[in-house]
Amino acid sequence: MQLIHLAASAGYTVPATWRVLTKAGYFIGLSGAIGATVTYAASVRPSLGEARSRGGDVEVTRRRTATYLAWAGVVLLVAGYFQLAARVARAGKGMPFGDALSPARIRDYLRAPAAKDAWIAQGTIHLVQNIVLLLASAVLIALFLPRARRHVNVIALTALPLSLAVTLIAAVPATAPKNADKVLDLVFDQVHIVSGVVWVGGLAFLAALATARRQPGEGAGLLWADTWRRFSLVALVCVGAVLTSGLWLSWKHVGSVSQLWTTTYGLFVLVKILLVLAMVTAGAVNQFWLMPRIVEARRDDDASSLLHLTLRHFPKVVWGEVVLGVAVLAVVPFLSGSARSEAGSPPAVSSGSVFAVGALLVLTLAASFYATVRASDALARRTAPTAA
């Protein structure tokens, strides 16, 4: 606590409560919409298509999917409104958040002219963003209608690019970036956000679907074994993108390892890193311990074990990851400012050597993930002789 106090006196400003709640809520809304639609398209939909013979479980999963996506649309709509009000309050230079909720204030903000050095008004960018957000929410909310649920595939695939556009449009700069570093900051920031919300949102989506039905049919084990297998690849890509973009962003804002515990910003980064590592550890448990046993149960046609692993044991670990993921989203609003500025360090400037080190780290990370997949497959093959 003393370190936090000392670091805060060096220039860190604790964000207002409304700022913390609106920003965390906004990322939760993005996780629900982007994470669920991407996971449905990449994992659930292909598994349902290959499991047409198991009609009961397929229909139940589709109904649960429609309900989840519909509520995700509601959450995105509400979170988007409060996030827009937060932008109005921040632009109002001391405007109370309660006043920023007024539609008149929001209208004035969205219609404000562009700044002198801007190529487009900031309000115009957010106007376009929120129009897209309304469309994405409306498409998802339509799944509350019985007729729309028959077309969950079309609706989910329509909402997917709209949901992604919500965050991508918001990242469009009102003024032209001054150098290549600014462009890379924007790119890596969006990579970090999209991969993070797909990871956390996908975990929450699948955990909710897997635990929603207490009496699954005989084919549910096979259906979910395929779904978890597909999502493990999605999660692996997201983890790689989160770590790669996180390395860049951490280097830009943290000047040295010691700043992780000598500055307030660094402390929050450290907490976030520990939470992400805990999520990666839980994912490793799934990859190295549960997935090989699921493969073994599927090979041995052990329906009872397969059902227990995929719909009882696996979701418990995933729910733990979801809790950690929500904790990460709760920390994000506190990452305001920079550890470098708090500590008086010079700004980070990229160079050829920095890019070379970064490329080496990315290649090392890719190699480790390839080794992870190969090791998991090897463990799955090794269980067969042992069981025999």
Rank of each mutant, 00 (worst) to 15 (best):
V354E: 11
A235V: 11
G325T: 06
R312Y: 10
A118Y: 10
L143D: 06
V373N: 03
L307V: 08
S163K: 08
E218Q: 14
R299T: 10
T65N: 12
S137T: 08
P146W: 00
A339P: 12
R62F: 01
R229V: 04
L203A: 15
L360H: 01
A100N: 00
T13Y: 09
T262S: 15
T13I: 09
W319P: 04
D189K: 10
A42Q: 12
W289P: 01
L274Q: 01
H308D: 11
S47E: 03
V276H: 05
L247P: 00
A371Y: 14
L243S: 04
V285W: 10
L260T: 08
L307R: 15
S53E: 13
G94F: 03
L6Q: 12
I120L: 12
Y370V: 15
A79D: 07
G32K: 04
K272L: 07
A241G: 09
T364M: 09
D189W: 04
V194M: 06
W289V: 11
T364E: 06
V197L: 06
A371F: 14
T372L: 15
L48F: 02
V373P: 08
A36T: 04
A115S: 14
V20E: 02
Y265D: 08
L290D: 07
R19N: 13
S250I: 11
A278F: 02
R54K: 04
R293H: 10
V285Q: 02
F205R: 02
L209R: 05
D189E: 09
L184A: 10
A136V: 03
G56N: 04
R374D: 05
A174P: 00
V14W: 12
G123M: 09
L186K: 03
H151I: 00
W228D: 02
T17E: 12
T264G: 01
A375M: 13
A156D: 04
W289K: 07
G123N: 09
R149L: 00
L127M: 13
L164N: 04
T244C: 06
A10I: 00
L363A: 15
V349C: 11
F82C: 10
I34P: 01
A176W: 13
L6S: 06
T61H: 03
T67W: 15
V14P: 03
A7C: 03
L134C: 14
V317M: 07
R298S: 09
T383G: 03
L168V: 15
